[in-house]
Amino acid sequence: MPLFFLIPLFTGLITGYFLNKENDEIGYISGVLTAISLIFSLILAPWQVQLGLLVVVLFGSKKLLQKKMYE
């Protein structure tokens, strides 16, 4: 399984981490670009990774909904 989809993810996360401390517009722009790179890397991810994330989201949301109903 090629791991080239991790390149935009790590690039965005590293850039967002270093520029997150800025209070100017550059901090907000880096946050938006980090979110875009996360979406882009999920699009490029192999189907096994996408399926695994889908299963985690479905079962995690079901457990959270059940927990919230009983509170």
Rank of each mutant, 00 (worst) to 15 (best):
I14G: 14
Q66M: 04
S61M: 11
V32D: 00
I29Q: 05
A35D: 10
S61I: 08
T15H: 11
L9D: 08
Q48C: 15
L44P: 00
G31K: 13
E25G: 04
L53D: 03
S30Q: 11
E71Y: 09
E25W: 06
G31W: 00
L3A: 03
F4K: 14
I39D: 00
S41D: 10
L13T: 06
I7D: 12
P2C: 00
N23G: 10
I26F: 07
E22N: 04
I39M: 15
T11M: 07
S37Y: 04
Y70N: 02
V32Q: 05
K68N: 03
M1L: 15
I14W: 07
E22M: 05
G60R: 15
Q50S: 09
I36G: 05
G27T: 03
F40G: 02
I36Q: 03
L44V: 00
M1P: 13
F4R: 02
S41H: 10
L53Q: 03
F4V: 09
F10G: 02
S41T: 10
T11C: 14
S41Y: 08
E71T: 12
P46T: 09
L58V: 05
E22H: 11
L33M: 15
M69W: 14
Q48I: 14
F18M: 14
V49R: 10
Y28I: 08
G16F: 06
V55C: 10
L53K: 05
L3C: 02
M1N: 08
I26K: 01
L53C: 09
P46A: 13
L6C: 03
I39W: 13
L64A: 09
V55N: 03
L65I: 15
F59E: 11
T34D: 11
L3D: 12
V56M: 04
L42H: 01
L3T: 08
V32H: 01
Y28H: 12
Y17A: 13
L13Y: 06
A35R: 06
L51A: 02
T34F: 10
V55W: 15
I29R: 15
L54E: 03
V32R: 09
S61H: 11
L9P: 06
L64T: 02
V57P: 00
V57D: 02
K67W: 10
L9C: 09
K68D: 02
L13I: 12
I36H: 01
T34Y: 07
V56W: 04
L33Y: 00
V49E: 04
G60H: 09
L53V: 01
F5I: 07
K68R: 06
P8S: 04
L13A: 04
P2D: 15
L54H: 07
I14Y: 02
T34W: 05
G16L: 09
L13N: 11
F5Q: 10
G60I: 10
P46H: 13
W47I: 10
Q48D: 14
L53W: 00
P8Y: 13
E25L: 05
L9I: 08
F18E: 11
Q66T: 04
L19E: 03
E71F: 14
L9N: 09
V56L: 04
G52Q: 02
Q66R: 10
V56N: 07
V57T: 11
L9Q: 01
